[in-house]
Design a protein around this nucleic acid. Structure first.
Length: 137
DNA sequence: GCCAACGTTGGC
DNA sequence: GCCAACGTTGGC
């Protein structure tokens, strides 16, 4: 089992819409590092859903439903998407300010690599967030 | 609006 | 292959 974090601007695609649609293909990744991370996702892996720009907090958990395939929004063979399905909303969202203060979480790429929209995180980091959010998996 | 932290482009 | 200049994201 691997763990990841993806960012979305609520303006474009908020968690509430994701929950309503139940699942979505995660498109728009145009960065090699993020693309490579997408390609390493396996079915069943858990993915944290972060709201950037507005909200600035981790709001929910998604599950990888389908592994990577050609991005249907472009003919460019370099880019791909994965299917994510909404798994669980966090009982308490985890704000960036908390992440920055936390001994474990401050080392997530989220904090320093602002341009990265898809990133791997460790099991310890994932579990810490679940813990802090008082959510049951 | 500013700045940090990248990624990208292109000249050499 | 190096590096300067520029572009982008996103927090503040």
């Amino acid at each position: 089992m691997q763990y990841f974090l993806v960012k979305s601007e609520p303006f474009k695609y908020p968690w509430s819409q994701f929950e309503k649609e139940k699942s979505t293909f995660w498109d728009g990744v145009r960065n090699y590092q993020a693309r490579n991370t997408l390609m390493s996702m396996k079915k069943g892996d858990l993915v944290l859903f972060y709201h950037s720009n507005e909200g600035l907090e981790i709001v929910g958990i998604a599950k990888v439903q389908k592994e990577y395939y050609q991005d249907p929004t472009t003919d460019d063979a370099r880019w791909c998407v994965v299917d994510l399905k909404a798994y669980k909303k966090l009982k308490q969202p985890i704000p960036l300010s908390t992440i920055k203060k936390d001994q474990l979480l401050q080392y997530m790429p989220l904090v320093k690599q602002s341009r990265l929209s898809v990133m791997p995180i460790t099991e310890e980091q994932f579990m810490r967030i679940i813990d802090l959010s008082e959510t049951k998996l």
